[in-house]
């Protein structure tokens, strides 16, 4: 049996860039993140007709920011693909969780509030039937 370890990822890790261009990329990422923050704050002040649109816009911008952080600050861009896969899997399963929870709750009948401190509801009235003259009489035992 032989153990064979290949390390073929010339691009990965520390030595992908010279420090000057790397620092420049980080600064650009920071500026982009700050601009996106300003945009999301500005967009929140505008009413686009429905609150849902505002939430979609805010979450889209947040996702762009998160992607920038993961790709540049967390080095996924130049990292081993397996690390990126794990990061993506985390968000994928969160997406599944989110989607199915909303489908589940969204497709139910609205729940009525229940007051647990209220006195118990009176026992149901005995089952009655109407006789030929219209008077209620207890149902016959089977």
């Amino acid at each position: 049996m032989s153990t064979h370890t290949d390390t073929l990822h010339g691009d990965a890790g520390a030595h992908a860039h010279d420090p000057a261009s790397e620092a420049k990329a980080y600064l650009k990422t920071l500026i982009a993140l700050l601009i996106l923050t300003a945009i999301t704050v500005g967009a929140a002040g505008i009413h686009f007709g429905s609150g849902a649109i505002n939430i979609v816009i805010a979450l889209t911008i947040a996702s762009i920011k998160a992607t920038l952080v993961v790709l540049f600050f967390m080095h996924i861009r130049h990292d081993r693909p397996l690390n990126g896969l794990i990061a993506a899997a985390g968000f994928l399963f969160l997406g599944i969780f989110l989607m199915f929870s909303f489908i589940d709750v969204g497709s139910r009948e609205p729940l009525q509030p229940v007051n647990l401190n209220a006195p118990p509801v009176a026992a149901p009235a005995p089952i009655t039937t109407l006789d030929s003259s219209g008077n209620a009489v207890p149902a016959a035992k089977p």
Partner: peptide, 23 residues
């Protein structure tokens, strides 16, 4: 520690619009 710190930042990126900007 850098990766951890960026994740904490990333979570705040979602917390901020959801709590402060919903309308």
């Amino acid at each position: 520690v850098g990766l951890y710190w960026h994740l904490v930042d990333l979570i705040w990126i979602y917390l901020f619009p959801l709590y402060y900007l919903i309308s």
